[in-house]
Design a protein around this nucleic acid. Structure first.
Lengths: 83, 83
DNA sequence: CTGTGACTCATAGTCCGTT
DNA sequence: CAACGGACTATGAGTCACA
């Protein structure tokens, strides 16, 4: 991986887990299935599931697909709050 | 229940260009070089340059590295404004 | 200091399934 | 409906020499 200048480089796994938790929570608020969400986003069912489990590190375009598919801002997906 | 349909599932290239423009503008406001920014983020110089040119589609972790390196929220990088 | 093309390697993302 | 697996292709990560 990258060069690492010791400072604040750390917790990106937890960011991925947070993303997954937020995604799952918000999706459930809309009462839709992973499959329905995937269809709305133009992504695959199994991929959305993996993101919710924090197992994937989505690209910007995938993040935007998800936020558009849910009609929410990116910050709500990533940080859990609408900043 | 929100929205969606293929109408707004399109222009992700423009989102990548917007990201690059925002990144370059913000970096210049800090008066630092691509090289210095890259070092702060733990990324490679040429990679940061390619993102600024809209040639890369960074993952969430790369986006977080950049936003942390600059000390700004993700939304400012992606949308150009602190939402 | 930055842009570019090319490259390797890892993983994003899809698709077929079963539990 | 969701988790998970295996196999696969496309693309991102990360680097370099050089312009």
């Amino acid at each position: 991986m990258p060069i690492n200048n010791s400072t604040h480089i750390a917790n990106y796994d937890s960011a991925l887990r947070a993303l997954g938790d937020n995604l799952k929570r918000i999706r459930r608020q809309f009462s839709i299935s992973q499959e329905q969400l995937a269809e709305r986003c133009g992504l695959h069912r199994t991929y959305v599931g993996a993101v919710e489990r924090g197992e994937r590190n989505p690209s910007l375009t995938s993040l935007l697909r998800l936020s558009h598919g849910l009609g929410i801002p990116l910050s709500e997906l990533v940080y859990g709050v609408d900043q």
